[in-house]
């Protein structure tokens, strides 16, 4: 391991690091919005939209991100739609993450105990009030572990952006290896960089899961 090589590569990795963080953040926020909207459409069984959401979720969950990206980046220009690589990455990540987040929220809503819903009904709550005061508060708390897992998953998926040459972390490492051949050093930095993002994040998320769980259910 040559530390000099590592040191010289750090500025470039820093750029990749920032880009990975930025793309992840935008992708995660977008995924949560799309996922929440989808799960609400499903919960309230809104006609037509409900069907569209179901189809979207199946397509998104059962196809690889890499192909989704190739489609956006290489195939769309052939029919006259040109999108920049970064925007392709963000769209792809949200397309993928939206369905994962939707499943997370829906799982939470479905996890609310039948007894809770019945006692809500027993005090006369209508469907909307039942959702607002019983199902959503408890359902969100129940979905936090799935959402946390999705967040970690989506950050890792940004490494696939390298296939459309977005200069995020993995792409930075691959470029450097291609140029200078020092694979050990660059791969080492790459793994450390992901660890720096993901280890603290997963600790924070676990802590948060416990807090939310205790705050809502007391155990």
């Amino acid at each position: 391991m040559n530390w000099e090589i590592i040191k010289q590569s750090l500025p470039m990795f820093q750029k990749g690091f920032e880009l990975t963080l930025y793309l992840s953040l935008v992708g995660i926020i977008g995924s949560i919005i799309v996922g929440l909207a989808s799960s609400l459409i499903k919960y309230f069984k809104i006609p037509v939209l409900q069907r569209i959401v179901a189809i979207y979720v199946e397509i998104s969950r059962n196809t690889p991100l890499l192909i989704q990206l190739f489609f956006l980046y290489y195939a769309f220009p052939a029919i006259g739609i040109k999108i920049s690589a970064q925007l392709c990455g963000i769209i792809g990540l949200i397309f993928l993450g939206g369905s994962y987040m939707a499943s997370g929220f829906t799982g939470g809503f479905n996890g609310v105990k039948k007894n809770q819903i019945e006692s809500g009904k027993a005090i006369g709550l209508n469907n909307w009030q039942l959702a607002r005061y019983v199902v959503f508060p408890q359902g969100f708390a129940l979905s936090v572990p799935a959402l946390a897992a999705n967040i970690i998953f989506l950050i890792k998926e940004t490494s696939i952006f390298t296939v459309i040459a977005i200069p995020e972390l993995t792409n930075t490492a691959m470029d450097l290896i291609g140029l200078y051949y020092n694979s050990n050093e660059y791969l080492f930095v790459l793994v450390i960089a992901y660890a720096i993002i993901l280890i603290p994040l997963s600790i924070i998320l676990t802590f948060l899961e416990k807090r939310v769980r205790y705050g809502t259910f007391g155990n």
Binding site: G120, N126, P137, G215, G218
Partner: peptide, 19 residues
Amino acid sequence: QTLRQKIGMVFQSYDLFPN
């Protein structure tokens, strides 16, 4: 839903809202 306001019900498992 309207009627239930006039009919109180208590269950075996209490089911207070934990939040």
